[in-house]
């Protein structure tokens, strides 16, 4: 579903990603671990072209993200074409980024109605069903500022799901939450994984990674240092920096 080949990204003279090779299969859950500044969030944002890569190839579902290849050169797609690619990739942010001027249900319907052209009644019906799935059926008419962090993040997940994405990206979805609210968000994500959603998750929740991930990747300094099934990698890390990282977070 996601295939990265030698992906490089730099800000000025700083190389944030130094040749990332990665593959995520359909229905797989990949957890990206690593200290802050390791490039894991940047890599996630490359997958829906919120950042532009400097070298390498990155494709989702067999399609290059954000570019079209002509001969040996990559040309950036138009605003509309990039929008169409992004519409099929859901994204959940650390700071939720709900639209504060819209009610909860309008936050969920705005994507289908304004991007896909779904009818309002149909979109609303589906939004209510999604909100029920994330346990927020009674908050349909509320505004984001009236919700707790955990509730806001669950609305954000419903908003992303409303676009019927083939891939979901999570950028530290629980890092901005109070500890007692982390569980409700992880529960929703667990449910998604069980339903077979392909997911790439940047997280510091080792318990979640161990339990839900099919593949765990440890990044530091813009490189992948360790990679494999969580049972192997998390229990018997071979890389020294990964060992040090795990001893701090576990």
């Amino acid at each position: 579903m996601v295939r990265a080949e030698q992906v490089w990204k730099s800000y000025g003279s700083l190389d944030v990603l130094r040749g990332i090779d990665l593959e995520v299969e359909l229905g797989e859950v990949l957890c990206l671990l690593g200290p802050s500044g390791s490039g894991k969030s940047t890599f996630l944002r490359l997958i829906n072209h919120l950042e532009k890569l400097d070298a390498g190839r990155l494709s989702v579902d067999g399609e290059l993200v954000g570019y079209r290849q002509r001969g040996h050169k990559l040309h950036e797609l138009t605003d509309r074409e990039i929008g169409a690619q992004r519409a099929a990739i859901g994204m959940v942010f650390q700071r939720f980024n709900l639209f504060p001027h819209l009610s909860v249900v309008d936050n969920v319907t705005i994507g289908p109605v304004k991007v896909k052209g779904t009818g309002k009644a149909e979109a609303r019906e589906r939004a209510v069903a999604l909100l029920e799935r994330v346990g927020l059926k009674d908050k349909v008419a509320a505004y984001p500022s009236q919700l707790s962090g955990g509730q806001q993040q669950r609305v954000a997940i419903a908003r992303a799901l409303a676009m019927d994405p083939k891939l979901m990206l999570f950028d530290e979805p629980t890092s901005a939450l109070d500890p007692e609210l982390v569980g409700e968000v992880l529960d929703v994500m667990r449910g998604l994984a069980a339903d077979g959603m392909t997911m790439v998750v940047v997280t510091h929740e080792m318990g979640f990674a161990r339990e839900v991930a099919d593949q765990v990747v440890f990044m530091d300094g813009g490189e992948i240092l360790e990679q494999g099934a969580p049972a192997d990698v998390l229990s018997n890390p071979t890389n020294e920096r990964f060992q040090a990282f795990l001893s701090k977070v576990l």
Binding site: D79, A84, R86, F93, L98, K114, A160
Partner: peptide, 27 residues
């Protein structure tokens, strides 16, 4: 208006014009 708003709108596939009209300007 927070940059996260534009990013969230973009990630839903909204064009720049729609993001400005529906998300940024109302806020």
């Amino acid at each position: 208006v927070d940059e996260g708003q534009t990013e969230a709108a973009s990630s839903l596939g909204m064009s720049r014009a729609k993001t400005l009209r529906l998300i940024v300007l109302p806020q």
